[in-house]
Design a protein around this nucleic acid. Structure first.
Length: 258
DNA sequence: ATGGCGTATAACATACGA
């Protein structure tokens, strides 16, 4: 089974690109972020015509997340975090898989820049709420997979020029420590678990020829709980959509479970 | 230090992203 995660940067602007991806690679589940639209303007039918049900937590203009699934998913929730700013950044589901129930969480963690503003405080608070939520969730069900746009560069080798990001909200030590705190609850950064030394960029800025120069960063992740790590067969960064016309600035990351 | 590009909006300039 393939579970994919992709920050699409507007589901409506990206619809043809998304459809092409679904047809070509046929992932079983896709977690999408930054859909930038409300539930009522989400293209349910277009996605349905390719065999995917959509579970949507939308928001006008900004943010917004959704789960696309070919098979059945249960217990969809979008209220598992108290978000002071009422932004649509998390949606969770349950999935029956090999006699286990997997709690699958899709996140779009705040960017946090600039660091001297409320946006940075919001990111830190959001991460603290998320950590609290995960502690509680683990008590109920150890089998958790979190996928999404974390807006966290975990380490120096995950960005093309780490020196220029030392005071950036994506790479600040304080933020990397919070990411580490999540891992320490009992999660594995699936990409690094399988590929300790291989570059794994998932985002390239639209500006300054970042894609052509490979000035990227690894900010989209799958975190897999210890109880499920043996079920991870592979993880791939699929660069095909980023190279197309009218691309998102992120590209999908695909987790293969056995 | 700035701006480069892309998306959205009761908009035609501004907010946001990373």
């Amino acid at each position: 089974m393939i579970v994919s995660s992709w920050n699409v940067n507007s589901v409506r602007a990206r619809l043809e690109n998304i459809k092409d991806y679904l047809k070509k690679f046929s992932p079983d589940i896709v977690l999408i972020q930054e859909i930038k639209t409300e539930d009522k303007t989400y293209p349910y039918d277009e996605i349905k015509s390719l065999g995917y049900e959509s579970y949507v937590f939308g928001q006008k203009s900004y943010n917004g997340v959704a789960i696309l699934s070919k098979g059945k998913v249960n217990n969809i929730k979008n209220d598992i975090i108290k978000d002071k700013n009422k932004q649509s950044r998390i949606i969770s589901s349950e999935l029956n898989y090999k006699k286990k129930i997997i709690h699958l969480i899709n996140v779009y963690i705040p960017n946090g820049n600039p660091v001297d503003t409320d946006k940075y405080t919001y990111k830190k608070n959001w991460l603290d709420s998320f950590i609290k939520l995960l502690k509680l969730s683990l008590k109920k069900n150890q089998n958790i997979i979190i996928g999404g746009d974390f807006n966290v560069i975990p380490a120096a080798e995950d960005v093309y020029n780490y020196k220029s990001f030392e005071n950036d909200a994506l790479y600040r030590l304080e933020i990397r420590k919070k990411f580490r705190e999540i891992l320490n609850l009992g999660f594995n950064d699936a990409y690094r678990y399988l590929y300790p030394d291989i570059e794994g960029y998932t985002f390239w800025d639209y500006m300054r020829g970042a894609w052509q120069k490979n000035n990227g960063m690894r900010i989209d992740h799958f975190l897999v709980s210890n109880s499920l790590i043996k079920n991870v067969k592979d993880i791939k960064i699929n660069k095909y959509p980023r190279g197309k016309e009218k691309p998102s600035d992120h590209t999908p990351i695909e987790l293969e479970l056995i």
